[in-house]
């Protein structure tokens, strides 16, 4: 299978998914759970009590923080290109090999 035709020296490289940016993810986990923060009517926005519009705004907070963490922990363009090449190579190899 795919592992059999790997180069002999080919073991998975050691990587780390640790990054200081990951701590940013704590914000959208904690903030929406602090109920007293938004459990009120005033100020209203377009007729919506705070309870409703602020919690919907947390959706945007979640999108922003996860996007930032994704961008900051992403591999460099060079690494990504190398990855795409490797995948394309792997695909043609496997197609040639034929499946059981």
């Amino acid at each position: 299978m795919s592992s059999a035709d790997a180069p002999p020296a080919g073991m998975a490289p050691r990587r780390s998914d640790r990054s200081p940016w990951n701590w940013l993810l704590v914000v959208p986990i904690v903030v929406p759970l602090i109920v007293p923060l938004y459990n009120k009517v005033e100020p209203t926005l377009f007729g919506w009590p705070t309870f409703y519009w602020l919690q919907l705004a947390f959706v945007v907070l979640g999108v922003l923080t996860t996007s930032i963490v994704y961008r900051m922990t992403r591999r460099s363009p060079g690494q990504q290109q190398a990855a795409r090449d490797a995948i394309a190579r792997g695909r043609t190899d496997r197609d040639g090999e034929g499946r059981p």
Binding site: M1, R15, S16, R84
Partner: peptide, 28 residues
């Protein structure tokens, strides 16, 4: 932390044999 292009990545393990669940990737 394996990525798709790694040699240890499996696209289609064969449920026929015990190999996919039991075998370590090369070099592991």
């Amino acid at each position: 932390t394996a990525e798709r292009e790694d040699p240890s990545f499996r696209d289609l393990p064969d449920p026929l044999s015990d190999e996919p669940l039991a075998g370590p990737p090369p070099g592991s």
